[in-house]
Amino acid sequence: MSFDSDLGPINYVVVAFASTPVPSAGLDQLAALVDTGRILVLDVEFVAKSADGSVTTVDAAEVGAPTFAGASSGLIDNDDIAVVADKLVPGGVGIVVVYEDLTLLPALKAWEGEGATVVSEGPILVEDLVESIDATEQG
């Protein structure tokens, strides 16, 4: 297992809306996370499903998110788009965001400076966390 302490955890989130335009509050919060250095957005893709069920990626401005125009980097591929499309209602739009979490990097750098070595890292699935909490509460 390898770890690159110059990178924070890489995650993604998919959010679906029944129609356009995409509400701006969440997009504003996403931009604020970038502006404050908490995350680095690696890719953003907007996926639209027409009334007849056909799926396309669309420009951010087409769904009311002009701030994110040009944010697509190609990390999200056609297989990913198909998974998102499956979750959309006809006329709906989905946002896929791939991002790097930068919040822990200063602590990792400090530990390295003190001679520590990061030996493992990885995600914890929400389902696993809930299951563990439930087991703890029942025991």
Rank of each mutant, 00 (worst) to 15 (best):
residue 54 S to W: 01
residue 129 L to Y: 01
residue 138 Q to T: 14
residue 128 D to H: 12
residue 30 L to T: 08
residue 115 G to M: 02
residue 127 E to V: 06
residue 67 T to V: 06
residue 50 S to V: 04
residue 58 V to I: 12
residue 85 A to T: 06
residue 20 T to F: 03
residue 76 I to L: 11
residue 130 V to E: 11
residue 36 T to D: 14
residue 136 T to K: 10
residue 122 G to H: 03
residue 7 L to Y: 13
residue 113 G to Q: 01
residue 137 E to G: 00
residue 70 G to F: 04
residue 83 V to L: 03
residue 123 P to A: 14
residue 6 D to L: 08
residue 105 L to Q: 05
residue 120 S to N: 12
residue 123 P to W: 07
residue 93 V to R: 07
residue 10 I to A: 13
residue 112 E to T: 07
residue 28 D to T: 15
residue 17 F to M: 09
residue 11 N to A: 15
residue 108 L to D: 00
residue 53 G to H: 02
residue 12 Y to M: 13
residue 46 F to M: 12
residue 78 N to I: 09
residue 128 D to F: 03
residue 65 A to G: 07
residue 84 V to D: 04
residue 124 I to C: 03
residue 48 A to C: 04
residue 21 P to Q: 09
residue 11 N to M: 12
residue 16 A to H: 10
residue 56 T to I: 04
residue 82 A to S: 07
residue 104 L to D: 10
residue 59 D to T: 06
residue 91 G to H: 02
residue 114 E to C: 01
residue 18 A to W: 00
residue 11 N to P: 00
residue 89 V to Y: 04
residue 125 L to D: 11
residue 22 V to I: 15
residue 11 N to E: 14
residue 57 T to C: 13
residue 30 L to S: 14
residue 43 D to G: 04
residue 114 E to P: 01
residue 30 L to H: 07
residue 55 V to N: 07
residue 128 D to Q: 14
residue 119 V to M: 12
residue 40 L to D: 04
residue 57 T to L: 10
residue 86 D to H: 03
residue 42 L to F: 01
residue 20 T to E: 12
residue 63 V to Q: 11
residue 19 S to E: 15
residue 139 G to R: 03
residue 5 S to N: 13
residue 38 R to E: 15
residue 31 A to Q: 10
residue 94 G to E: 06
residue 60 A to K: 02
residue 121 E to S: 14
residue 85 A to E: 01
residue 32 A to Y: 11
residue 28 D to A: 15
residue 97 V to G: 11
residue 109 K to C: 00
residue 126 V to K: 11
residue 94 G to P: 02
residue 12 Y to S: 15
residue 83 V to S: 00
residue 131 E to S: 15
residue 6 D to V: 05
residue 12 Y to L: 13
residue 112 E to D: 12
residue 22 V to F: 14
residue 103 T to M: 09
residue 55 V to K: 05
residue 104 L to F: 05
residue 66 P to S: 13
residue 24 S to E: 15
residue 52 D to H: 01
residue 91 G to S: 10
residue 47 V to K: 09
residue 23 P to S: 13
residue 23 P to N: 09
residue 61 A to H: 06
residue 119 V to P: 01
residue 77 D to W: 00
residue 93 V to D: 08
residue 49 K to Y: 03
residue 90 P to K: 10
residue 23 P to D: 10
residue 52 D to A: 11
residue 8 G to Q: 05
residue 58 V to P: 10
residue 45 E to P: 01
residue 117 T to C: 05
residue 68 F to G: 08
residue 5 S to D: 12
residue 41 V to W: 06
residue 113 G to F: 01
residue 90 P to Y: 08
residue 96 V to R: 07
residue 76 I to T: 13
residue 134 D to R: 14
residue 22 V to D: 05
residue 114 E to V: 00
residue 114 E to T: 05
residue 136 T to E: 10
residue 21 P to F: 09
residue 79 D to C: 02
residue 1 M to T: 14
residue 4 D to W: 03
residue 16 A to G: 08
residue 49 K to A: 12
residue 47 V to H: 05
residue 129 L to C: 03
residue 98 V to T: 13
residue 40 L to Y: 00
residue 9 P to D: 12
residue 92 G to M: 00
residue 97 V to M: 04
residue 90 P to M: 06
residue 72 S to W: 02
residue 117 T to P: 03
residue 97 V to K: 05
residue 47 V to Y: 01
residue 82 A to P: 02
residue 125 L to R: 13
residue 40 L to G: 11
residue 20 T to V: 12
residue 78 N to F: 02
residue 55 V to C: 00
residue 60 A to Q: 05
residue 44 V to F: 05
residue 114 E to D: 15
residue 102 L to W: 02
